[in-house]
Amino acid sequence: MMDNPTHALIVENLGKRYGKMEVLKGIGITVAPGERVALLGHNGAGKSTLIKLILGLTHPSSGRISVAGHAPGSTAARTATAYLPEQVAFHKSLTGREQLTLFARLAGEHPKTVMPLLDRVGLGPAAQQRIGTWSKGMRQRLGLAQALLGHRHVALLDEPTSGLDPMSRHDLYAIIDEMAANGTAVLIASHALTELEARTDRIAIMRRGELVADDTLARLSARAALPTRIRLTAREGAADHVQAQLGGTRVNGCSVDLQCTTDQKMAQLSRISGLGEVVRDVEMAPPSLEDLYRHYCGEGM
């Protein structure tokens, strides 16, 4: 199978059924070398299933996948692919170093690459301890370390932030950026849109087995046209007056919530300042990542 070298990963019209249940419907997505794509969707949307199909761990009911120009599950495709599973598990009785050495041998890498990698993910001091004694976060880091073995064309990270503390998340950004800088196509599955996913080049969104969006964050925000929220705090007893003037909804005694689109923002603000003394404070919240996620993944679409 020969494919366009500008794409490390190609998924075309992919369908997957388990019995009668259609888990994936006509999924099409491509990832170029060096590109970072976040794959978002609620639990059960089909993200992990898509990743398992790309890995060749399970087989599609319809459609086509090409991994660095090879069929999924072939030796060449597996050599080219790094994978961080959603529930990462290892042999409990092996030490971190022994487990990673096993993976290095399987990947055809020299065992001397193992210690630097363990240091890279901050596991150097724990390398000689059995994995059975480790915390979930440490196992997650080991999972990340094995995904960094050798040079891979495609990296599939399934919920890579689960179990990581904020500091480790920060390291994770750096590692993902490094992978991409080395030309690896990175696909990150996640059930939320957070800082990490927002830092990717593109965001693909799945809902109940279908791809409902695939674009940059900026364009997704523009298309969603989500309102900015404004919260006014009125002087004592003046909340009713403010609501009568501007509309919106009353919250806890002296506050009023308003919504407006981006282009109405300035007009709304001048009306607020026109009320003068009765408004004691104004807070503005532009649409958050969470709002955006809810907009595309919510059931109300």
């Binding site: 398992k52 890995l55 060749g56 761990l57 030796t75 597996r78 050599t79 692919t81 994978y83 599973p85 529930q87 990462v88 598990a89 290892f90 042999h91 993976f103 399987l106 990947a107 055809g108 999972g143 094995q146």
Partner: peptide
């Protein structure tokens, strides 16, 4: 059952 098989099988190991 322990979830260790999936990852190993994504390596170039038959």
């Amino acid at each position: 059952e322990r979830g260790t098989l999936g990852l190993v099988l994504t390596y170039p190991l038959s």
